[in-house]
Design a protein around this nucleic acid. Sequence first.
DNA 1: CTGAAAGCGCTTACAG
DNA 2: CTGAAAGCGCTTACAG
Lengths: 324, 324
Amino acid sequence: MKPNIHDVAKIAGVSSTTVSRVLNNRGYISEKTKEKVYRAMEEINYFPNDLARSLFRKRTNLIGLIIPNSSNPFFGELAFHIESICTSMGYKLLLCNSLHRKDKEEKYLEMLIRNQVDGVIAVTYNRGILNYHKQNLPIVAIDHYLSDSIPVVGSDNYDGGKKAAELLIEKECRHIVHINGPIELTTPANLRRKAYEDVMHKHGRQPITYEVPFYQDYHDIISTLFDEQPDTDGIFSSDDIMAAAVMTEAKKRGKDIPNQLKVIGYDGTETVQSILPELTTIQQPIELISKTAIEILAKEIEGEFDDIPPETYLPVRLLEGRTT
Amino acid sequence: MKPNIHDVAKIAGVSSTTVSRVLNNRGYISEKTKEKVYRAMEEINYFPNDLARSLFRKRTNLIGLIIPNSSNPFFGELAFHIESICTSMGYKLLLCNSLHRKDKEEKYLEMLIRNQVDGVIAVTYNRGILNYHKQNLPIVAIDHYLSDSIPVVGSDNYDGGKKAAELLIEKECRHIVHINGPIELTTPANLRRKAYEDVMHKHGRQPITYEVPFYQDYHDIISTLFDEQPDTDGIFSSDDIMAAAVMTEAKKRGKDIPNQLKVIGYDGTETVQSILPELTTIQQPIELISKTAIEILAKEIEGEFDDIPPETYLPVRLLEGRTT
DNA sequence: CTGAAAGCGCTTACAG
DNA sequence: CTGAAAGCGCTTACAG
């Protein structure tokens, strides 16, 4: 069996209280005793059981991360940064892929509660998460409004949408179309659309937005867009994956990018940038978003609710490639 | 404070033993008592503390996943599938991004041990993990030999390399070059290289492999390859990301793909396929690899070591795009 | 069918 | 500077 603190105590010839003190570097312990205890721990290859510690302390240093899907480059990178930062702060990360499904989100949340996580970082549109907030579990949301009391962190979506739309106008596109996710979602990402529409109106243009519902194949919608809007010479896609699909469809139809059609995406993940460096896009500061979200969550965990901003929007950056 | 089993017992008017029995559906309990207990749990919003349960049972249902980096599409998808399958089997996943760094791998492993994980799935080249195996912690490795006693699961790398090399030969490439990771790594992925070399020799060709060490920018190496091997008309890259970089470099140099240069990658992740559908590649069965690895790990956890194959190689598939 | 007691592996007042 | 005792929130023989 795995050795426990009593085994260490026996070998070191002290009480388990003393071993615990050495472990936690707490109270006065003579150097000699410390030595003995360390030697004993090493001898039997002892590692403290964090379950027992957490049970007593009512603190697990466990954080739950609920994202739709770590396969997606944006979420994959978000998960990477969040995990890295958590680790550097002494937190451990429980990964949950909800696939945007409400039932899964709820089950995951219950699992996280049962596992006594100290807090949850959620990228989810499911306001059902609210019900759990009553348990006063610290939560921070990324790019989604979950409730008035849950802080949100994200990129400056309005500015990103504005930058994208303005670039296409600047590049003298005449017929600019926008592709976005479902509008019902209460996500700040809708601000990308709002900004696009505002810019269009400001320039006396008619905004046209194609919506991609969840679970629907965006290829069909992009194909429809090309059919219905043959004059399109500028497309602002609210994410890079769809922008790539637009590029593929344009190539298929013999439309030259950027001469006949200019394309700009959103996210600017390392992955997409490395695979498709020509894609112009609005880059989200994923690492900064991660860092900010964790810092806010850490404050909630420590009970410092005073200086937590309800919404934090981090600056985006225009990455100009050759598609515009 | 969070309610515990005694709070439930008090409200239901029974002992905590009975509540526990209801919770675990164990032994005989009258329907009436069950009802009362369930009602009480609901009334105070009770969720059992899995920490306490796990402490007693010496079983956490926690699995640790160590991957280099969830930002990479292959590992992001692997993490997604592993997490999904774990969840469907009642396991929870602790995510660790090692960045291929030995010190990080060791720290993560210690963390996982302290947290009493039931098992570990590792994608790491660090044989240092061996030291921990003494703790008889169930481990399964993906695509890397860690030790004789640690089962390995991966794609059929030899067949993949063979398929790739043969395709280029079939397509009448005269000068075929291979790009691979560092050869020192004791990974079955070296079989991709071996297969390439075998196929080349079989056809009386001279194999040429460019190695990309960790942490080195592969762009430089690709650029060097183009400089040093100007006649190259076929490149087999051992991963899709580098294949994409080859495509970018070719475009920069005005080399037409596939007419002047044919490119084939490896991995065939959903992400790369959706962004770069034209890329010909060898697709790894990521979901199947995940499933197999978890099943093997589950057997180790249950102590059924008999029918665990030391090595499992799952079939790959050639996805032909327009780059060959 | 139900409950009191012991124990999982720790930590922390408390006492000395 | 060190130890005995109680307790974190559960579960499981054991007894009735």
